[in-house]
C-alpha cells in the first residue's frame, strides 16, 4: 500500500512548495519500512477478500451463465423479497438476534471468569491440564458435535432417555420434537464448544498485563477481587471491546452447524431453531439460486456493518484508543 502514499506525493509535486515536499519525503522515507510491512497482508486481503467482492452484484441480478455474470439482467431487489415476505421472516430474525445476543454476553462473561481463574492457578501441571481440556470441545467439528448430541438426546438409544432419566425416575422425553428445550440446549452447546476458544484469547491478554500493577496493589493491601475489578478487567478492556464489536458485526450470521446439524434438521422444533442462515439454506436447496443466496449474505452484512459503525462510534466517544478504527 505504499503506492497510495507515493501517488499522493507525486500529484502534489507541482502545487506544493518545496519545503513541504521535503518534509513529506522525510516522513515518507521514515515510514517506508512500515508500509513494506503492510504490503503482504494487504495484497492477500485484496486477492482473498476484495477481488471476490464483485460477487456482491450477483444479489441484484438474474444470473444466466450463458450471458456471464456481468452481462446478466439487473432485477433490482427481487432477490431480497423472500427474506421479508412471510411471517417466518420475523421468527428467524428474532431467533438470530436473541441467540447471538445471548451468546455474546454469556461466552464473554464465562470466558473471562475462566481465564482469570486459570491465571490464578499456581500448580503448572494442573493449569495446563485444565486449559487443554476446556479447549477440547473447540477442536471438533459441529457434525461430530451433532453426533454427540444425538448420543445424549436420541429418543430410544440416547444416554439421557436410556440411562439418566430412568435413573431419576423421570419419563423419557422426545428431545427432537420439543421446541421449548432447544434454546437451552443450543446455548449450552455453544458455550461448551466456544468457551475454550475465547478463554485462550482473554488469557493471552491477561498474561500480557504488566505484573508491576499487581505487586503495587498487593502492597497497598488490595484484595483479589479488587485487583480483578480494578486491574485485570480494565487492562483487558480493549480486547473485550474488540471481540464484542466483531461479534456484533456478525450478529445476523449464525453458526450453521449449530443450528442445522445439531437439531438434526428436525422440523418440529423450527420455532426455536430456525435462524436466517438455516432458513436461507432450506429455502434455496431446491432452487439453487445464487442470486438469492448472495442477497441474503448482503443483507446480513449490511445490518452487521451498520450496527458495528454505531457501536464503534459510541466506543470512540468514550475512549478513542479502544475503538476499532
Amino acid at each position: 500500500m505504499s503506492e497510495i502514499t507515493m501517488k499522493t506525493a507525486d500529484t502534489d509535486v507541482q502545487s506544493v512548495p518545496a519545503k513541504k515536499i521535503n518534509k513529506r519525503m522525510v516522513k515518507f522515507s521514515r515510514y517506508f519500512p512500515l508500509f513494506i510491512m503492510l504490503v503482504p497482508g494487504l495484497i492477500y486481503l485484496l486477492i482473498n477478500n476484495y477481488l471476490p467482492m464483485f460477487g456482491l452484484v450477483i444479489a441484484f441480478k438474474d444470473i444466466n451463465y450463458a450471458k456471464g455474470i456481468f452481462a446478466s439482467d439487473w432485477i433490482g431487489f427481487k432477490n431480497f423479497e423472500y427474506l421479508f415476505k412471510t411471517k417466518d421472516a420475523f421468527i428467524i430474525t428474532r431467533n438470530t438476534i436473541l441467540y447471538n445476543g445471548g451468546f455474546i454476553i454469556l461466552h464473554t462473561v464465562i470466558a473471562i471468569g475462566v481465564a482469570i481463574m486459570l491465571n490464578e492457578i499456581k500448580n503448572k501441571l494442573m493449569k495446563s491440564f485444565y486449559q487443554s481440556v476446556i479447549l477440547l470441545p473447540f477442536l471438533i467439528s459441529m457434525v461430530i458435535v451433532s453426533y454427540l448430541g444425538f448420543a445424549f438426546l436420541s429418543v430410544d438409544i440416547g444416554y439421557l432417555n436410556k440411562t439418566l432419566l430412568p435413573m431419576l425416575g423421570l419419563e423419557e422425553i422426545q428431545w427432537y420434537f420439543e421446541a421449548k428445550f432447544w434454546p437451552y440446549i443450543l446455548t449450552f452447546i455453544h458455550i461448551w464448544k466456544s468457551v475454550g476458544f475465547f478463554c485462550v484469547i482473554y488469557l493471552a491478554a491477561i498474561i500480557g498485563i504488566d505484573k508491576e500493577f499487581y505487586e503495587a496493589s498487593t502492597l497497598d493491601g488490595a484484595s483479589k477481587m479488587q485487583q480483578i475489578w480494578y486491574i485485570t478487567i480494565p487492562s483487558i478492556m480493549p480486547v473485550i471491546i474488540m471481540m464484542t464489536l466483531l461479534a456484533i458485526g456478525r450478529i445476523f450470521y449464525s453458526d450453521f452447524g449449530l443450528f442445522y446439524q445439531v437439531p438434526m434438521n428436525s422440523g418440529a422444533i423450527y420455532d426455536t431453531t430456525n435462524v436466517i442462515d438455516t432458513y436461507v439454506y432450506r429455502g434455496l436447496m431446491q432452487l439453487g439460486d445464487i442470486g438469492m443466496s448472495a442477497a441474503a449474505g448482503l443483507y446480513q452484512s449490511i445490518v452487521g456493518f451498520v450496527l458495528v459503525l454505531i457501536s464503534n462510534y459510541i466506543v470512540r466517544r468514550k475512549n478513542k484508543e479502544n475503538a476499532l478504527f
Partner: peptide
C-alpha cells in the same frame, strides 16, 4: 421463486 423459498421452509 420467492414463494418457493418460503414454502420450502414450511
Amino acid at each position: 421463486k420467492t414463494e418457493i423459498a418460503a414454502a420450502t421452509n414450511v
